[in-house]
Design a binder for these strands. Sequence first.
RNA 1: GCCCGGAUGGCGAAAUUGGUAGACGCAAGAGACUUAAAAUCUCUCGGAGGUAACUCCGUGCCGGUUCAAGUCCGGCUCCGGGCACCA
Length: 888
Amino acid sequence: MRQHTLDFHHSPCPIFTGAHAKALNKPMDAHYSPRELEHQVQQYWERNQCFKAVEDASKEKFYCLSMFPYPSGKLHMGHVRNYTIGDVVSRFQRMQGKNVMQPMGWDAFGMPAENAAIQNQVPPAKWTYQNIDYMRHQLKALGFAYDWGREFATCDTSYYRWEQWFFTRLVDKGLVYKKMSTVNWDPVDQTVLANEQVIEGRGWRSGALVERKEIPLWFLKITDYADELLADLDHIDWPEQVKTMQRNWIGKSRGVELSFDIETAAGQPAEPLSVYTTRPDTLMGVSYMAVAADHPLAKQAAETSAEIANFREECAKGGTSEAEMAKREKKGLPTGHVAIHPLTGKKLPVYVANFVLMEFGTGAVMAVPAHDQRDWEFATKYAIEILPVIANEDGSTPDLSDGAYTDHGTLINSGEFDGLDFNAAFEAIAARLAELGRGEVKTNYRLRDWGVARQRYWGAPIPVKYGPAGETVPLTDEELPVELPMEVTVDASGSPLKKMPEFSELGDGWLRETDTFDTFMESSWYFARFCCADNHDAMLDDRVNYWLPVDLYVGGIEHAILHLLYARFFTKLMRDFGLVETSEPFQRLLTQGMVIAETYYRTTSNGGKQWFNPADVEVKRDEKGRPVSALLISDGQPVEMGGIEKMSKSKNNGVDPQSMIDKFGADTVRLFMMFAAPPEQSLEWSESGVEGAHRFIKRLWRQVQEHLAAGQPPALEIACLDDDQKAMRRKTHETIKKASDDIGRRITFNTAIAAVMELSNSLARFEDTRPQGLAVAREAVEASVLLLAPIVPHVSHILWERLDHADPVIDARWPQVDEQALTRDTIELVVQVNGKLRARLDVDANADKATVEALAMADDNVQRHIDGKTVRKVIVVPGKLINIVVSG
RNA sequence: GCCCGGAUGGCGAAAUUGGUAGACGCAAGAGACUUAAAAUCUCUCGGAGGUAACUCCGUGCCGGUUCAAGUCCGGCUCCGGGCACCA
């Protein structure tokens, strides 16, 4: 079954036997041997420190950054794709003459290290640094043009000490505060769980029903910057979809905050009930109020009602994630309290409901079931009045039997406000409420402040201490940094810091904070630290203002909101402290798609699924090449095809980049990654696709060798070329034009590569060995090598050398288009009749409209389709097409 | 549930500003070379009909705008990303 793989290894055209290593320096290598070649080129780069970046005010800078990896063990294909994209852009920009900086580091704090520690009894620090060593080695094997001199890991004290220092400054400026917040509590393991660790409402290790628990936590005032975060989106070159997601996340809205007087069930006094609405125009349609289980009114009702007390307990069960809350069945109970409508005096029932949360807004909502879908569902379920107050576009009363009518419109059933449109009604009702002292117009944000405290060990300690009299004090500069103890034992019961008096007790009754920072804190400023990672006397220095903002940031779309928003916020904080000049960290953003692969499984006896790696499976195809079945290579028995999914451990469909590098070389892996799909789309892994990429590199290699063997070409004499030579030259320059635009502007490497493949195919058919023929071929060959140099840098380095260039290809000038070479004598015009293709004409490039029209009309096939019909119109798109519109 | 995307041959994709649907590659089939295989090279390759010229159909589904729609508009379906403690 593995025969073909073995044959591949033993073929007479070996790609990685050692036999040819010595031959590399001779001009006539028959074979392409990536292993030796890549190693040799990588050594050249390292020896000459080719990618060391130095500030140089005389040159235009280009800071290219890929999202740094979490050191989970080894690289996965998503990393390889991410870093290849960044590397291609970096090398391209260097060939444009820019001063390029491309750094790399490690996002080293996080939960997986703690989980590994629990499983393997290895301290998180040791596990992390081992992983970093292995993954660094892998990155080097891929030939990325990094300035390794700037490398750091966020778990280095020399990094996180500055984060601690900056946090104490934020405390001083009042940008940090502590408040009660809800976390997932595992009552068995007695520990706080991340949302990821809550599966269907239960703790992933203990299986216990998770409870919501309130604890005091540290917050950063990101909401102070909400307006700026929103406005500055207009000044950065990010994908529109990402900007839209951030706008929606910030969720700026204009509404009215108003209050309803309350008559409590037991006659106790109660504060007026405050709510916020973006639809004050529907105020006359309010038919009930809903409050959160933790709202004072609900607590009050629970004192006299066992039913409500039980309901409140039920609401405290389950995880805290918004998705889980939103999917939960909407339930509620009447509290017995009555709210008084501020304009009509109408009595409205007050419900306690599980979909209203104390953390959001005022913890209460006014419900208008006629014009809000969620309110409609709740009202329908509990038989509450549904009163339409907004008319259909035609003025009729909306049909509410299937759901709410949520569009804006003219008011009805609203007394004095009848006939007003949305804007007029908004203003009139807001004004009336203000007049009565019952409400005011208010701008609200969906964005909430950033909770940065984690009850975990493997993170940067929060630099705060608590005094015996209840004081909360940030640590002084002399007390910093707070070093995280490295030799610890981690178990499932939470952070060991809490059990380490040598860490937490400072004497005289003072206690140190044992919570650590959210790991998003580290990833919110690492791009700035890369500019001056060797400075151990300051967080940042002047060099940041040479390099920042990052010119291109490359990473997964999954970071579209949280990481990217926090990094933008942090940049604005640093700016306001005079640490950086820029207001935005990342000028241009490229969000790359996932790497996906086919999955294979067998159903086990207990009904579960056993997943098999694609490398261990052979696919059977029918005569059309359609996959029909798959066999496990080891036992020859069938397996099921489970569809194409994101590469993951759980589906066992991950392909190890290392095995592919060993088998085909880094250039092949890079080429395949860049060719198989545009960067923003998901990329399906295909080993035969990789083989195809490998074939292309071998063909290019051979093409260059054959060209060199044909002899030294003379200087190109453009005036002396015949038509075939001109056509070949036109193809070369068309390719340069397209590839430059594709790589430089569009960032679509797949089409750039396809264009070079076309050039290579044209060149293979161009068998002109006359002196000027060789000169034309030389231009084509050199263009191919230069255009591919950012993508397959190792083989390009060698080929460029063979083509007799003294300077390395990394410093070669990007090829320039000769516009003269692009001109054509004739062009192809398409002729349509009623929009359907009927003929193609070769016409003189300078032919006028009348001539072209006459030629089109004269065509036999066109005549057949317009014969006996009336020509109504002729549309001519110059240089492209003619459409003859006929009828009858 | 809410927010943001995506869907084109057997497969990955291309078509950049509304103007030739399927470039380039993979798989498959046929052939050349070879004792043989591998490698390499040549040809075919959306579906249906036709000896051919050519014709009809075809970009997830339904409808619309336009001389012209993969592309624009309205309504769906399915798949993916995010939802604040995975990173």
